[in-house]
Amino acid sequence: EPREEEAEKYIKRANGDYDKAQELAKKDGNEEIAEAIKEYKKR
């Protein structure tokens, strides 16, 4: 799923820090991806 791939990219950029990844996504205006990262975190 493209959303998950995007989320993974942010998580990698944030060195595995989900909260930081979420912030990066929000900064880029990717609210949807920020949500996907939140879902990811719950797994």
Rank of each mutant, 00 (worst) to 15 (best):
N15G: 12
K9R: 11
P2K: 13
E35I: 09
K27I: 12
D17C: 02
I37E: 02
E5P: 08
E6A: 11
E8H: 09
E4H: 10
R43D: 10
I11S: 00
L24G: 02
K38S: 09
R43S: 10
K20E: 07
I11Y: 03
D28I: 01
A21M: 00
I33F: 03
Q22N: 04
D19Q: 07
K9L: 09
R43I: 12
I37Q: 00
N30S: 07
A34W: 07
E32D: 14
Y40N: 04
D28K: 02
E31I: 12
A36Y: 15
E32S: 11
R43K: 15
E5F: 10
R13W: 14
K41C: 04
R3V: 14
N30Q: 12
E32H: 12
K27T: 10
Y10L: 02
E6P: 05
A14K: 00
E4W: 15
A25V: 02
A7T: 08
I11N: 02
G29M: 05
A36N: 05
K12C: 03
E35G: 05
R13M: 15
K27A: 15
K38N: 07
G29H: 06
K9C: 09
D28S: 04
I37H: 00
Y18T: 05
E31V: 12
E39R: 10
D28Y: 04
R43P: 05
A7I: 15
K26L: 15
Q22W: 15
L24V: 04
Y18L: 09
A34M: 09
Q22F: 15
E32Y: 09
R43E: 10
K42Y: 12
G16D: 04
Y10D: 02
K42H: 14
Y18I: 05
K9I: 11
D19P: 02
D17L: 03
I37D: 02
K38V: 10
A36H: 07
E8Q: 11
Y40S: 05
E31P: 14
K20A: 10
G29K: 05
A36G: 04
D19L: 06
D28C: 02
N15P: 02
D17T: 00
A25F: 00
I33R: 01
N30W: 07
A21F: 00
D19I: 06
N15H: 11
G16S: 03
A36I: 14
N15S: 06
N30L: 13
I33S: 03
E35M: 09
Y18H: 04
K41G: 09
E35L: 10
D28F: 04
I33V: 13
E5A: 11
R13V: 09
R13Y: 10
I11D: 02
I11T: 01
E5N: 09
I33Y: 03
Y10W: 05
N15F: 08
K26M: 15
E23K: 06
N30I: 04
K38G: 09
D28H: 04
A7F: 12
E35K: 09
N30T: 03
E6H: 06
K26R: 13
P2S: 14
Q22G: 06
E23V: 07
E1C: 03
I11V: 07
E5L: 11
N30R: 14
Q22H: 10
R13E: 13
A25H: 01
E32P: 07
G16P: 00
D17P: 01
N15Y: 08
E4N: 15
R13H: 08
E39K: 08
K20F: 11
G16K: 03
K41Q: 15
A25Y: 00
Y10P: 01
I11F: 04
E32T: 08
R3F: 15
E6M: 12
R13Q: 12
G16R: 03
E6W: 10
Y10H: 01
E23S: 06
I37F: 01
I33D: 02
E31H: 13
Y18C: 05
G16E: 03
G29C: 00
Y18V: 06
A25Q: 01
A21G: 02
D28N: 04
D17Q: 03
N30V: 06
I33G: 03
A34P: 01
G29T: 02
K27P: 01
D19F: 05
D19K: 07
I11W: 03
E8G: 06
R13K: 11
Q22Y: 15
E31F: 15
R3N: 13
E35Y: 07
P2F: 15
E4A: 10
A25W: 00
E23A: 08
R3M: 15
E31D: 14
P2D: 14
K41Y: 08
K12E: 12
I11H: 00
R43V: 12
D17M: 02
E5R: 11
R13S: 08
A14H: 01
A25R: 00
Y40W: 11
R13C: 11
Y10K: 00
D28A: 05
E39P: 00
E4K: 09
K26A: 09
K42N: 15
Q22M: 15
G16N: 06
K9H: 11
Y40P: 00
N30K: 15
A21P: 01
E5W: 11
A21W: 00
E31A: 12
N30A: 09
R43G: 07
A21T: 00
E23C: 04
G16F: 08
G16V: 01
E6C: 06
K12M: 11
A36M: 14
Y40M: 12
E39Q: 09
Q22L: 15
R13G: 06
A34K: 03
A14D: 01
L24H: 05
R3T: 14
P2V: 13
I11R: 00
N15V: 03
Y18K: 03
D17G: 01
K26F: 11
A14N: 02
Y18R: 03
K9T: 08
L24W: 08
R3A: 12
K12G: 06
L24N: 06
D17E: 03
E5I: 13
A36T: 09
Q22V: 15
E6Q: 11
E23Y: 08
K42S: 12
Y10Q: 00
G16H: 06
K26V: 13
K20L: 15
G16W: 10
I33W: 03
K9D: 12
N15Q: 09
E23P: 00
P2A: 14
E35C: 03
E39L: 09
E32K: 10
